[in-house]
């Protein structure tokens, strides 16, 4: 049977189909096996982020669309929203917690800022437990960089990142 005959072509198709089928099965099995782990880490990351933003809270309620409520003994003590800032390299994904027009906390979930410059926005100094840059926002009701006549110290040589984060927080406060 040559490859050009109908039978030969069918044989080729059959072999390819079998390979694809086996590959699909292998992928499905791996997916079912790893999915719980993947979901768990995602949830854990989010939960960690949320409790960094509102440290006092003991529970969080997912309102959908990137919005959350921080709860303490069943009462709402703050609202948290997912916000994207225009960073130097890409969008910076962050959580901002607000209560009564005041900032409870800011946490950066994902960023692609330059190491040593913009990436220092998540830098934690020795003997401290949260990034010094983000801690500045806590308790404020209006924010702007000191260079722009405000109250926030910029990260040295990373004005664009500092300004992007500060502007995103200011925008969220105005809402």
């Amino acid at each position: 049977m040559t490859d050009e005959s109908i039978g030969g072509m069918l044989r080729i198709a059959l072999i390819l189909t079998v390979i694809m089928l086996l590959s699909a099965i292998a992928l499905a099995v791996t997916h079912i096996y790893t999915k719980p782990f993947i979901d768990q880490t995602k949830e854990q990351k989010l939960k960690e982020g949320l409790s960094m933003v509102v440290t006092q809270a003991d529970d969080f309620k997912d309102l959908g669309g990137g919005y959350y409520e921080a709860l303490l003994d069943g009462k709402v003590i703050g609202k948290i929203s997912t916000v994207y800032a225009d960073g130097y390299n890409d969008k910076i994904k962050m959580l901002i917690g607000i209560s009564d027009g005041k900032i409870l906390g800011v946490h950066i979930l994902e960023h692609l800022e330059t190491p040593g410059l913009g990436a220092r926005s998540t830098e934690v100094r020795p003997d401290e437990d949260e990034p010094w840059f983000l801690r500045q926002f806590k308790g404020l009701d209006s924010v702007a960089l000191k260079k722009d006549g405000g109250n926030i110290d910029a990260i040295t040589a990373a004005t664009i990142t500092s300004r992007a984060i500060t502007d995103a927080v200011a925008e969220e406060l105005r809402k």
């Binding site: 390819l16 590959s23 292998a26 791996t30 993947i38």
Partner: peptide, 24 residues
């Protein structure tokens, strides 16, 4: 005749498995 597509399917399968394992 179809060795390259067959190789690629095999390779892609293992890559996706590795991807999922690493993510997990």
């Amino acid at each position: 005749k179809v060795r390259i597509p067959a190789f690629i399917v095999i390779i892609a399968t293992f890559v996706t498995i590795a991807d999922m394992l690493l993510e997990g």
